[in-house]
């Protein structure tokens, strides 16, 4: 599909469309569905253009809470108000929630089988590798900037090695990092 400009009148007309659109997103991805949110919103249903999506995403990542839930809240509200937010969130969560509980129950029932235990252990090892790859991909754009590397290392050591409570780590690191970013930006402008 091309990145053609969004034709007029493609906004979801009813909350039911938001529900279905986000249900499609929730069922598409494994271990995170943000890429599928972009595909649904920008390419398939064209409720947002590329720039609008990037802005919604950056706000969702900046605010606390699960990013994709925040995307659903903002997009739902933009088109259909509070009821739209509710419909989008329900659509996103309902099926994955039921499926994961069914899987957990199945696992509980059959975890005495060596094959099931082996498969689960191997899946969690591989899924761990995926998380590490995600972290390294996110780290790539930071590598050229010394202070960002130092902040990332501090975060890693604090949480992984020292097991500092996340609240304390964030209270120290977040203001520090934002202040550095602010000062450096100011210096560059002068």
């Amino acid at each position: 599909m091309s990145e053609a400009s969004r034709p007029a009148g493609t906004a979801p007309a009813r909350a039911g469309e938001l529900f279905l659109g986000f249900m499609q997103v929730g069922l598409s991805g494994f271990g995170g569905v943000l890429p599928f949110a972009r595909r649904m919103l920008v390419e398939e249903r064209r409720w947002l253009d590329e720039r609008e999506f990037t802005e919604v995403l950056s706000l969702s990542q900046f605010l606390p809470g699960p990013n994709i839930v925040n995307v659903a809240v903002i997009v739902g509200n933009r088109f259909r108000g509070p009821f739209g937010s509710l419909a989008a969130c329900l659509g996103l969560m309902l099926m994955p929630f039921l499926i994961v509980l069914a899987l957990a129950a199945l696992y509980n029932r059959f975890d005495s089988l060596a094959a099931v235990r082996g498969a689960t252990a191997a899946v969690s090892s591989a899924a761990t590798g995926l998380v590490i790859a995600t972290g390294l991909k996110m780290a790539r754009p930071l590598v050229g900037t010394g202070w960002q590397v130092v902040i990332a290392l501090c975060g890693f050591v604090a949480l992984a090695i020292a097991r500092v409570p996340l609240l304390w780590a964030l209270l120290v690191l977040a203001p520090l990092a934002v202040t550095i970013a602010w000062v450096i930006r100011d210096g560059a402008r002068r």
Binding site: Q61, T128, V131, G155, F156, L166, L173, I180, A181
Partner: peptide, 16 residues
């Protein structure tokens, strides 16, 4: 720009 490296550190800690 400030929060980006904090997030990277946290995600890598998750992997660990």
């Amino acid at each position: 720009r400030g929060l980006a490296p904090v997030t990277v550190g946290l995600v890598l800690a998750s992997g660990y």
